[in-house]
Design a binder for these strands. Sequence first.
DNA 1: ACCTGAACACCGTTCAAGT
DNA 2: ACCTGAACACCGTTCAAGT
Lengths: 182, 182
Amino acid sequence: MANESGVRPLRADAARNRRAVIDAARHAFAQNGVNASLEDVARAAGVGPGTLYRHFPTRNDLVLAVIEDGLAELHRLGVELLDDPDPLSALTRWLQAYIDQNSMYEGVARTFASPPPDGDERSSCRLALDVGAALIHRAVDADADDVRALASAIAWIDGQLPPDPERRARLLRMMLDGIRPR
Amino acid sequence: MANESGVRPLRADAARNRRAVIDAARHAFAQNGVNASLEDVARAAGVGPGTLYRHFPTRNDLVLAVIEDGLAELHRLGVELLDDPDPLSALTRWLQAYIDQNSMYEGVARTFASPPPDGDERSSCRLALDVGAALIHRAVDADADDVRALASAIAWIDGQLPPDPERRARLLRMMLDGIRPR
DNA sequence: ACCTGAACACCGTTCAAGT
DNA sequence: ACCTGAACACCGTTCAAGT
């Protein structure tokens, strides 16, 4: 470990390439989903495929880098909502934001659903999930992983079906309230 | 249309090849999920890739052929459960079976989730979905497509996460009962 | 220490030739 | 009418050579 933040410093050109790859990936993912061609991403970033693989050994590593900002935002929002006097309303709003992030790029719900890469306990990913768990436990009597899993599942299925702008909200309500017997 | 059932009869060798492809696909899907290599499937079936494509123009067509039996079973079970005096228990059991079928092959939930291919109104697919809708409307006050979508979503997320034999049942209960506020 | 890009492997898909 | 399999395209991944 090379410095106190745990992040080994990169040579200037390496850092530049890393940023270029992330930016190119963000555009490609927005256009074609997270399964966009990595060859295209590398070309758009102006680097060779080997450079892309050096920085991001797996596709999921690259996806995580692209959604980094979204995870930080989920963390920030979660901390803010912990001050909300209504725990259930706060949780609902956070889950809405979580589902929105899960729907940002086609196929990205898979990454949100997967367990966070271990190693850094202070990663945006871990921080966001932790504050989510706190909001869940504060509001309802349920397992935090189950609640988050079902929220990711809602984002996934919504992306599979013909567009319906109301569906995400309906399914979230169904998840929170359950189905009412006739 | 060549006969009253709407199915054009195949030449004997074509019918044999079709069966061989489906059987090979079932094995390959069981092993590697529904994204298994179609080249491998064709080779295992002893046909050229062109023959596979002639019978099944898209991968989803082949997946539908493989799950045909499962859809017929869902239909049969649904008809039986319509006689169950407890509508909510009947629905729960049908949704369990539906989720089981959605979890049969890795990635198959996507096919169950997608709208049924139109054309044949009496396909196993349509019949299964129709009886499902009847069970849903008989038991609860909710949109049948939404309920089915959420069930497919549960099957999907369960397949994404580290194995947990109880998770599917927990999430189904969460979906039916909702989350209880603390 | 990092980058390049050729090279390899694998696979989806098409189609001209065959039976 | 159907099948075959060569051929093409595309892409993930590696690695020897370069700076």
